[in-house]
Write a protein that binds this DNA or RNA. Structure first.
Length: 223
DNA sequence: GCGACAG
DNA sequence: ATCTTGTCGC
């Protein structure tokens, strides 16, 4: 697929934060998309002592969830892991992988937060904006916010709050497992994000999109 | 100054 | 994220 010309990536942490403050105003938190035919999982892994970043994209049919396309890309790691600035470390390699995809997805499920972020600009917001695709943040743990423990059944959820602002949902995707932290990234609302994630999670704790992307990004160094 | 802190 | 064996539970 084709992606928009991105901004510079060789930024200092303070410049990166300034960019987030500027780009956060472009985020759309309402459903802005047509029929869903393909959903994609995006994930990143590291090799050679973190010096190489490996990104993977897995495109699945919806609602069947069968793998229809995938791509992997590697590039030297150029930004450290800094809580709140994850996208600057991972997105450059992800864009490389997206350019190798044949089937442009209708929705991205990203590993990490959407607006459940100190500046409401997690990796799902950043990637959604640069690709102009609807994007949802699916995180395995919390970055910011407070919440009550959701019920124990699949589909149970509680709001993730920052003060009195709802920034996401703590969602039980399977009975008795640790909940996932869901938050919209771009062109999708929270309610739709929750429904989509549940639709993509028929059996395990993580969505099939995430499982495929993770397998490709962290599995045996093939391709 | 003392914790917290996506991946 | 990544380094790593066995182990508890359905």
């Amino acid at each position: 697929m084709h992606t928009l010309p991105p901004h510079a990536w060789d930024l200092s942490p303070r410049e990166a934060i300034a960019l987030q403050q500027r780009l956060r105003n472009e985020i759309v938190l309402a459903d802005r998309f047509g029929p869903l035919r393909h959903v994609a999982g995006v994930d990143v892994g590291f090799e050679a002592g973190n010096t190489i970043t490996r990104a993977a994209v897995a495109v699945l049919g919806y609602p069947g969830l069968e793998l229809v396309d995938h791509a992997i890309a590697r590039r030297p790691t150029s930004f450290p892991y800094v809580p709140g600035l994850l996208s600057f470390r991972e997105i450059p390699a992800v864009l490389d992988a997206l350019e190798r995809i044949r089937t442009t997805p209708d929705m991205l499920l990203c590993d990490g937060q959407g607006i459940a972020h100190p500046r409401r600009f997690g990796i799902a917001c950043h990637l959604g904006l640069l690709t102009d695709l609807p994007a949802i943040g699916v995180a395995k743990s919390r970055l910011v916010g407070t919440h009550a423990e959701p019920g124990n059944e699949k589909g149970d959820w509680t709001p993730l709050l920052d003060g009195d602002e709802i920034i996401g949902a703590v969602l039980r995707t399977r009975r008795g497992v640790k909940p996932l932290y869901i938050s919209p990234g771009h062109r999708v609302c929270l309610e739709t994000s929750i429904r989509l994630v549940l639709d993509c999670t028929p059996r395990y704790r993580l969505p099939e999109t995430t499982r495929w992307a993770h397998r490709l990004a962290s599995g045996p160094a093939v391709e």
